[in-house]
Each structure stands twice: as C-alpha cells, then as structure tokens.
C-alpha cells in the first residue's frame, strides 16, 4: 500500500501539512520558552522547539543538518542548559517576576522587528526557484573539506578554546574564596 500524493479529504499536500505542523509547534514552544515562570519547564520547551526545527530542516532537504541539530542542540546544548539551571536554582523557587518591569518596550521592539522583516521579505525578489533543492550529505562533506577547510579548522580551534575557557571560568577559585 502506498501513501497518496495529497491528503484525501483536505486536498493539501503532505509537505504543506508537515510545514504548518512543525511551524506551529516551533512557534508555540518558543513562546513557552520566553513566557513560562518555571525555568526548568522553559528549558524543556526549548528541546521541543529544537526538535521541530530539525523537522523543518528535513523538509528543507538537508538531513545532515537535522542530524546535527538533534545531536548538538537537543543532545548537548539543552543538557548543558538544564545542568546550569539546576546549579543556579535558588531555594526560594522561581522568581516572582518573570519579566523585568519594562517588558512592554521589549514586546514593542519584537513587533517592530517582525514588521520590518516582513516588509523586507515582501519587497525583495530573491531569485528563488519554486521547488526545494535537496542537498546530499556527500556533496556537503566534499565542500566542507575542500573550499571550507580553513573555517572548519578555525572552528575546531574555537571549540578547544571554548572548552578550556569554560573550565577556567566555572572552576572554583580556592585562593579567593
């Protein structure tokens, strides 16, 4: 049995339905990240947001990026953030005020930002084609190790420096304590 091209009753294509689904989950969980009072819950909502972003990357035809998103963001960064949350929880529980007192100015800035971006997107002709181009992992790997070798090596040095810097900053300082 094969899956039909479009969804039988609605007549929408599977890609559109998946796009709307992933987009709704992503925006909803991103809103939860910024609004939830309990910071551990907003950390968990962030994992959902990253997962639906991985789904969008698959829709965009780049499975290697979806895999990297799951490995790095869900597997590493989210766990790091959750550890940091648990190290910095105060005994009083979540703060009474989630937002600082001038949060309306931040909301205004965000709305203005969306309007500006929408205007730019609507006004520009990007020269885009109407179908999605699939990028193969093979081609990405060849490009990464030929044209992009210098950035690749620079990133490896940067990661080493970040690891050493992170250990140095978070290390307990016995002399001054």
């Amino acid at each position: 049995m094969s899956i039909p091209e479009t969804i039988p009753i609605i007549g929408a294509s599977w890609d559109d339905v998946l796009f709307v689904l992933f987009a709704a989950v992503m925006l909803g969980s991103a809103l939860l990240v910024v609004t939830l009072r309990d910071i551990i819950r907003s950390g968990l909502a962030m994992i959902v947001c990253f997962g639906s972003l991985a789904g969008l990357y698959v829709l965009l035809g780049s499975p290697i990026l979806a895999a990297a998103q799951v490995l790095v963001y869900i597997g590493a960064i989210s766990v790091l953030v959750l550890f940091a949350i648990m190290l910095t929880q105060t005994k009083a529980g979540p703060a009474r005020l989630v937002f600082q007192t001038q949060w309306w100015a931040a909301a205004l800035a965000a709305v203005v930002l969306v309007v500006i971006f929408a205007a730019v997107v609507a006004a520009t002709d990007w020269g885009a084609v109407a179908v999605r181009v699939q990028s193969t992992t093979d081609a990405v790997a060849r490009l990464l190790f030929s044209d992009y070798t210098l950035p690749f090596e620079a990133v490896s040095v940067l990661l080493l420096a970040a690891v050493i810097g992170g250990i140095f900053l978070a290390k307990r300082d016995e002399v001054r304590d």
């Binding site: 925006l27 991103a30 809103l31 910024v34 937002f99 600082q100 931040a106 971006f117």
Partner: peptide, 10 residues
C-alpha cells in the same frame, strides 16, 4: 523576534 523579546524581557 520571539528570541529578541525574551532576551530583552526575561
């Protein structure tokens, strides 16, 4: 924009 709002407001 959601990220910007959260960064400025939290």
């Amino acid at each position: 924009a959601i990220g910007t709002f959260g960064f400025l407001a939290r």
